[in-house]
Amino acid sequence: MSSRTANRSGIVIRRHVTPAGDIIVTLLTPQGKIKAIARGGVRGPLSSALNLFHHVAVQLYQTPQADLGTVRQAALEGALPTLSEPERYPYAHLLAELSDQLFQEGEFSETAFDLFAGGLRGVSRHPDPEWVGLVMSYKLLGLAGFVPRVARCAHCDEADPAHPDPLGGQLLCSRCASQPPHSEPVLTFMRQVLRQSVRALMEHPLEDADRDAAWRALERFVAVQVGTVRSAAGWRSRLQDGLRARA
């Protein structure tokens, strides 16, 4: 018997409240990305569970007539309250927005879910959430098939490029480049980030000064390959933020 209700468990990566008081959420689940509506939800008990970054179990109801499934029940399975802290919050947004852009509805991927969930946990707990955000962003991109070229110049295919690619976020050879070469740690990071394990990467964070270059490369790479990512304002917040959140 085909049922129109299904139980799913996932993390809220977007939440929007309509003026009518409906909550529209996007969940990343091991069975793929799901967008659903909780009608009148803002006035009811669903409102608490259906919050950004919450891990929730939901009962979905789908009819062929409606575009969006309806959330009927929602139970919180896990929340990471520290994600609201100013030094963590922008990186949680970045990972959620990237995941929303990179993974499509109906695309089954337990790996994507696990990677994102792990990234979010890291951002919520790690003493250096910025570093988690940078590493996990590259990991998510890599999983979705967006792999920066680092072995050869992005312009002329020359081997072993070492200079920034200010437009595309990859690497340029000395002839094609207009900027001085990356520092050795940044180069190593860019070459290794998709090869090394998260654990290994966590153990050797870049110095503060080098991170700017890595962030800039990531931002350009995403802008060209994936498209606008509005959390961009967030991921450079360490450069601009009046609070200088990082201790």
Partner: peptide, 13 residues
């Protein structure tokens, strides 16, 4: 909400 709480924490700091 998470966003409201983040804004409050930012203002607190």
């Amino acid at each position: 909400t998470v966003e409201g709480e983040a804004t409050a924490l930012y203002l607190q700091r």
